[in-house]
Deep mutational scan, measured.
Amino acid sequence: NKEHILAQKEVLTPIEYEHYVKHLFDIGEITKELYIELSS
């Protein structure tokens, strides 16, 4: 869920976080809207 993803932002580097969010989007775990929101 969104809270879990945002928690990852605390422990990952910005680049790792971007890759993580992109991966979730690629596998269909999150919607495009959520992907855009989380990567901003």
Rank of each mutant, 00 (worst) to 15 (best):
N1S: 14
N1R: 08
N1V: 04
K2L: 11
K2Y: 09
K2W: 14
E3N: 11
E3H: 09
H4L: 13
H4T: 12
H4V: 10
H4R: 05
H4P: 06
H4S: 13
I5W: 09
L6P: 02
L6V: 08
L6F: 08
L6T: 10
A7W: 05
A7P: 03
A7R: 05
A7C: 04
A7Q: 11
Q8I: 13
Q8Y: 10
Q8N: 11
K9D: 01
K9W: 10
K9Y: 06
K9E: 03
K9Q: 11
E10H: 08
E10A: 08
E10M: 06
V11N: 10
V11M: 13
V11H: 11
V11K: 08
V11S: 07
V11F: 15
V11G: 10
V11R: 05
L12K: 05
L12A: 01
T13L: 11
T13K: 09
T13P: 11
T13E: 12
T13Y: 06
P14H: 08
P14R: 14
P14N: 15
I15L: 12
I15K: 04
I15T: 10
I15P: 11
E16F: 04
E16H: 04
Y17M: 03
Y17G: 00
E18Q: 05
Y20G: 01
Y20I: 04
V21E: 00
V21R: 00
K22N: 12
K22H: 13
K22V: 08
H23T: 12
H23K: 12
L24Y: 03
L24R: 02
F25Q: 03
F25R: 02
D26F: 03
D26I: 10
G28A: 03
G28W: 03
G28E: 03
E29Q: 15
E29W: 13
E29A: 12
E29H: 13
I30D: 00
I30G: 00
T31L: 07
T31I: 04
T31H: 07
T31E: 10
T31D: 14
K32A: 12
K32R: 15
K32T: 13
K32L: 12
L34W: 10
L34S: 08
L34A: 10
L34M: 10
L34G: 06
L34I: 04
L34H: 06
L34Q: 08
Y35V: 03
Y35T: 01
Y35E: 02
I36Q: 15
E37W: 06
L38I: 10
L38H: 02
S39P: 00
S39K: 12
S39A: 10
S40Y: 12
S40W: 12
S40M: 13
S40A: 10
S40Q: 06
S40H: 13
S40T: 11
S40D: 14
S40N: 06
